[in-house]
Simulated scan of single mutants.
Amino acid sequence: MLYDTLVAEFRRNDSLDDVRSTALDRVRWLVDLLERRRTEPGWDASAALRGPEGEFERIRAIRAATQSEIDSRLAACPEEEARAAALCLMLASRFDDTGFRRYDSEIKTVISRVRGWAPDEVAVMLVRVTEFDMGFWSAGSLGMALGAAEHPARRRRQDHRSDRPPPDQEGCLMTTVTFRDETATGRPLAEWEVAGQPDRMTVRELIRLRVREEVARHNARPTIRFNGLVRPHDAETELNGYRLREPRRIDWEHQAEIAERAFLANGFFVLAGDRQVEDLEEPVDLTANPDLVFIKLVALVGG
């Protein structure tokens, strides 16, 4: 699979390994779409003329549908996920001899709207560019990435008041979400932040964001211990976490599906500020309620 190949190909035993692997984990959906694109049928003029009637149009429609899905997903993903997507596209570009896949248009589209680049993310792109035999093609995208690095993600002020940009930049507001685990009696268990998120997200998006982030952190450097909302199926429960039988990677999408079903079955509650949210499609205004409290009532078992 392309995902496994990319993970193995770009493990360089350097300080950027975690950045690369975390980016690939966060956009596993994109890796799967790129794999589909790479394995779609190609064409040449003579083959199209010899083939069944309409074969050229059929192949073109298949390729166009995949490209449309890639473009729409990239346009809709939040800013932190978009940065991971740009890194993924850069890593997947011309990494083997199976084709001249460049993804430069996709990279430019993502980078043109992304802010909050971390120095390590820019470093991953810089290193990748030096590996191309024809590195000039990515110079424009890299220039935009370096420009975006001058615009870090907005962070919430300590008092949680709205820190809105000027009116002409209203749609660009990004915020930091705080996830906090508590017992049913209110005892705090864990707390962490995820920066660079839209100012409004649904409960479903927030649950999936939480699961994706905690799994990405684990998969960046797998150990036998996993701290997360959903217990992997072969793990034992420990104090404030789970113990795997052996270090391994975890499928975040499967974990997220388990978490969504558990929320609907009251396996855990979510509080936005001091208000309990009860519907997966309910929007949460993160400018007013950037703190999400998770209260787990039963053990949630995933994959």
Rank of each mutant, 00 (worst) to 15 (best):
Y3K: 12
T5C: 15
L6Y: 08
L6G: 01
R11T: 15
R11D: 10
R11E: 12
S15D: 13
L16C: 05
V19R: 15
R20K: 13
D32V: 09
L34A: 01
R36S: 15
E40D: 10
P41F: 01
G42W: 00
W43I: 08
W43S: 10
A45S: 11
S46C: 13
R50S: 14
R58C: 01
R58L: 04
R60C: 07
A61C: 03
A61V: 01
I62P: 00
T66Y: 07
D71F: 13
R73L: 04
E80F: 11
R83A: 04
L87E: 06
L91C: 05
R102N: 08
Y103N: 05
K108F: 00
I111E: 05
R115W: 02
R115I: 03
E121C: 03
V122G: 06
V124C: 11
M125L: 15
V127G: 10
V127N: 10
R128E: 05
R128L: 07
D133C: 11
G135R: 09
L142A: 01
G143E: 08
M144S: 07
A145D: 01
A148E: 00
A149M: 13
H151R: 15
H151P: 07
P152R: 07
R157M: 06
D159F: 11
D163N: 14
R164Y: 08
R164A: 12
R164I: 08
E170G: 05
G171D: 10
L173F: 01
M174Y: 08
T175G: 14
T175W: 04
T175Y: 03
T175M: 14
V177H: 08
T178R: 12
D181Q: 06
E182Y: 06
T183E: 12
T183N: 13
P188W: 02
E191A: 13
W192Q: 02
P198Q: 02
T202L: 04
T202N: 07
R210N: 11
R210C: 08
V211I: 11
R212H: 06
E213N: 14
H218I: 09
A220F: 10
P222H: 13
T223E: 05
R225I: 12
R225L: 14
L229H: 00
R231P: 04
R231H: 02
D234Q: 11
A235K: 06
L239K: 09
E246M: 11
I250H: 10
D251T: 04
E253A: 12
R261N: 13
R261F: 03
A262P: 04
A262H: 06
A262M: 12
F268S: 09
F269C: 15
F269Y: 15
V270Q: 00
V270S: 02
G273R: 00
V277G: 10
E278L: 15
L280V: 04
E281G: 12
N289D: 10
N289Y: 05
G302E: 13
G302H: 15
